[in-house]
C-alpha cells in the first residue's frame, strides 16, 4: 500500500511539472489551440486560403462566433459532467471497500 502511495505521489508531481513548466518557461506565449495551427497549416500546404464549406451549427444559430467566456463555460460543463460521474462512482467504490474490509476483519 505504501509503495502504491509513493508511486502515486511521484506520478502526480511529474504530471504537474509537465503542465506548469511550459507556462513558466515560455513567458509571453499565446497558448492558442493547436487545432487552429492546423488550419494555418492547411493554407500553407495547399497554397490557397481554404474556405470552410460548413459553419458549426452553433455559430449559425448564434449568428457569429461564440464569445470566449461562453466557450470556457461550455468546456467547464463538459468537465463538470465528467468529474461528477467519476466522483460519484469512485465514492461508492471507496465506501464499499471500507464496508467489505470491516466485514472481513470481523
Amino acid at each position: 500500500m505504501s509503495k502504491n502511495k509513493t508511486t502515486v505521489i511521484i506520478l502526480l508531481i511529474i504530471a504537474l511539472l509537465i503542465i506548469i513548466v511550459p507556462v513558466i518557461t515560455m513567458k509571453g506565449a499565446e497558448f492558442g489551440g493547436s487545432d487552429d495551427a492546423g488550419s494555418v497549416m492547411v493554407e500553407e500546404v495547399s497554397g490557397s486560403v481554404y474556405e470552410p464549406w460548413f459553419t458549426p451549427v452553433l455559430e449559425t444559430f448564434l449568428g457569429g462566433e461564440m464569445p470566449g467566456e461562453l466557450e470556457s463555460l461550455m468546456f467547464c460543463v463538459q468537465t463538470g459532467i465528467g468529474v461528477g460521474i467519476m466522483a460519484f462512482i469512485m465514492g461508492r467504490f471507496v465506501e464499499r471497500k471500507k464496508w467489505l474490509d470491516k466485514e472481513n476483519t470481523l
Binding site: I19, P22, C76, Q78, T79, I81, G82, M86
Partner: peptide
C-alpha cells in the same frame, strides 16, 4: 467511469512546450 474519463480529459486544454494548447 471510462466514459466520464474521456469527458474530463478531452475537455482540459493544457499548455504545451510549443506555446500552444
Amino acid at each position: 467511469m471510462a466514459g466520464a474519463f474521456i469527458f474530463v480529459i478531452s475537455s482540459l486544454k493544457i499548455p504545451s512546450v510549443t506555446g500552444s494548447c
